[in-house]
Design a protein around this nucleic acid. Sequence first.
DNA 1: TTCGATTTGTTCGTATGTATT
DNA 2: TAATACATACGAACAAATCGA
Lengths: 256, 256
Amino acid sequence: MNLIPRPDTLAGGQPSAAPLYREVQLRITRALAAGEWKPGEAIPSESRLATDFGVSIGTIRRAIDELVAGRILVRQQGRGTFVATHTEDRTLFYFFHVVGKDGSQEFPVSELLGFRKERAGPDDESQLGIPRGSRVARVRNLLKLGGRPVVLDDITVTTERFPRIDEATFRNREGTIYGLYQARYGVNVVRISERLSAAHPPAEIASILGMRSSQPALHIRRVAYSYNDSPVEYRRSWINTSDHEYLSDLWKTAAR
Amino acid sequence: MNLIPRPDTLAGGQPSAAPLYREVQLRITRALAAGEWKPGEAIPSESRLATDFGVSIGTIRRAIDELVAGRILVRQQGRGTFVATHTEDRTLFYFFHVVGKDGSQEFPVSELLGFRKERAGPDDESQLGIPRGSRVARVRNLLKLGGRPVVLDDITVTTERFPRIDEATFRNREGTIYGLYQARYGVNVVRISERLSAAHPPAEIASILGMRSSQPALHIRRVAYSYNDSPVEYRRSWINTSDHEYLSDLWKTAAR
DNA sequence: TTCGATTTGTTCGTATGTATT
DNA sequence: TAATACATACGAACAAATCGA
C-alpha cells in the first residue's frame, strides 16, 4: 500500500507535531507572502503541488481548503486555483460594510482629500507594530454613496512597506485601495479587524460629511492584515449613519 | 471496486443536482431543527451515519465539516460530535461583541428590567417574518460590565415559538438568554445579523445607561436566526461606548 | 463543432494515528 | 487494556468545467 512514514519535518526546519496539511498550508502561505505567485495568477495545479511536496493530492486539497475559506485563494473548476484579488466587485463588500438603511448595497465613489508623509504617532506604532518614529504616509479619502458623502477614511501606512508612495499613486489608481496595495506593492489584505464606537465628529469632519458636529457619527478603528496576521494598514473612519448602517453579518459573507 | 451509481434522490423526495454531501447536510440540519438530537447531546457517530444514510464516511465528514465551521456542531476527538450549546463561555463572545477599549473581554452581568406581552408592530413583523398582529413577548434586559451599565437590550420574540414564556422564565434562568431559548424551547440560535448606527439615545435609555441624552450611543438592530435561516428573535440594543467598543473581527472568531 | 487534455469537484475505500471511556 | 470515535493521509475512479487544437 506504499505507506511512507510521515517525516517530522517537511522543509528541513524545526521539527513539528502539526499535521502534514498544516505544513503544506504554511509553505503555500509563505510562497504567497514571498510573492512567488502573484494576485490573479494561478498557483500550480493540485497534482503538481502534490508531486512537488511529495504528499497526496488529498492533503494538498485539505491545505488549500482553509485558504479558500479565508478568501486568500479562489478555486475554479476546470481552470485552476488563483490568488485572490481585490479587483472583483464581489470581494469589495467583504471589506466594505456600509449599506443603506433600506438594505441596498451600493458601490462607493472615492475622492482623495489629502496626502502627507510624517512620523508615526504612538497609536500608529502600537496598531501597526512598527518601531518608534517610523515614517508613515497618511491619506484622507472620502467615500460617497448616492452622490453624498458618507464615509471619511484617515489611512495610515508605513513607507517601509509602501516605498515611494505618493499622492498621485492614490489619485490615479483604478479600483479599490486594497487593489492598489495588491497590484503595486504586492501587499495583499486578507483580513480586517474593526472596533466601532459612537461619538461626535470633530467639526472639520462633520463639515466634510455634511452633518452638524452635534450629530452622532460612527467611529471605526480598523487594522488590516496581510498573510501571517501581519498588520499593514491602520484606518480611522467616520460614518454618517443618517441614511446608512454598518452591517455585521458573520456567516452570510463567509462559507456556511 | 463496488461503484454504485449515485441516486438522484436520497430521501425519496424531489430530484436534485446538488452533491450528495449537501443532501446529507440538509438531512442532518432537518433532524436538528426537528429536535431529533438535542443541544449538548452527541449525534450518531460518523460510521453509524454512514451506514444509516448509505454513503461513505468521507461524505459524512464533508457534510459535517461546514456545520462545525458554522458552530452548529462541535467535534471532539475520541468522544463524538455534539450539538453546540450556548452554555459554554467560548461561544458567548461569538454573539457578544462588546469589549473594553483596552481590549479586555469581560463577562457581562445581566439584569432584567421589564417584561410584557403585546401585539407585534410592523417592524417586528418584517424582521421576524410573522403575520400581522402576532402576539409577541418583549423583554428589557440590562448588561453590566465592571459593575456599570453598558448595554440595554429590548428583545422581541413570538409567543408562538416561545409558548408560555413569562417574566419568571427570564428572571430565573441560568446562563445566557440564547442558552434559555435552547434549553427550554428547543430554539437554537446559530447566526446573527446586526445593523449598527450612531444616535442619541432616548432620555429613558440614556438614564439607564448612566449617560446624558446629548451623548452619542451605538444603536444595534439584531436579528437572530436558527437553523435554515429562520428568524427567531429581534433585538434593539443601545450601547454606551464611553469605555467600550463593538468588535467586528470576522476571521479571528471563525476558522482560518 | 468536436475532441481530447487539463484541472478542480465528488465519492468511495482503506489504513493508521490519537483521544476518550 | 480494549473498544469506540474522530483525525490524518493515501489512493482510485469518475464527473464537470475549461480551453485549445
